[in-house]
Amino acid sequence: MTRAVPGAAGVDAGPRRSGSGWPPVAFGVGLLALWELVVRLAGVPEFLLPAPSAIAEQVGAQFSVILPTTAVTGGNALVGLVAGFVLGVALALLAAGARVVGELVTPVVLAASAVPIVALAPVFTTMFGSTTEIPRRLVVTVVVTVPVFVATARGLRQVRPVHDELMTALAATPWQHARFVRLPGAVPHIMTGLRLAAPAAVIASIVAEYFGGPQNGLGSRITSAAANTAYARAWAFVAASIALGLLFHFAGLLVERLVTRSRTT
């Protein structure tokens, strides 16, 4: 889990082609069946890999705990996602607006993309204390800011020359230029940044929990369950993490679709 913040790579990968969702679902179910079969037939010890049925049983038994736990982690991810999104767009606008600012801000943000979040989490926890959610939200914010900044900056740079000329001929101020042309033109890029950042926010939110703070989120529960040799329970929380990640992924995809569609029709 020394995953660095997702950066420039893949920002332009468009939304995947919308097709039937069934093949991947069928594939997933098949994989689970295979997993169950292998665990039972080969007698894999539980600490190594519990069977899906055992995990499902734990999900049912722990549901009243899983729900609020997921809400805590998801809440941190959401707050950080919104903050990082606003910050990323604002910084990119500043960087595009004034060259001096751009030369100052861009290297700093890109350097942030090289910082593994594991390095940030303990530092923030020491700074703000271990009884608040702030350090985690900050970690998420940093993780989200980078891809949103990179995508927005790219979108702002891709102004069609004819639009640039037009705004100059109209004697538009730099702010009008940004508001009428650059920013709306960059919206598809910004939305791609948001889509890429959304699942990363969940990962950051979970990983940040491994470094202190209140023991109320998915990351903390996974650690404590594993420490108590309750492997199936740990996996139940892992399953909840996956569900939360997918939720953010699809929410990001949905927002991107809705925004880009409303512009072309």
Partner: peptide, 23 residues
């Protein structure tokens, strides 16, 4: 210009309004 250079995210009437909007 040779290219119409309309802003795709604005409706036709909003495109015509642009110079007045800027002013």
């Amino acid at each position: 210009f040779q290219q119409a250079g309309l802003l795709e995210w604005r409706s036709v009437v909003e495109n015509v309004e642009l110079p007045l909007h800027v002013h």
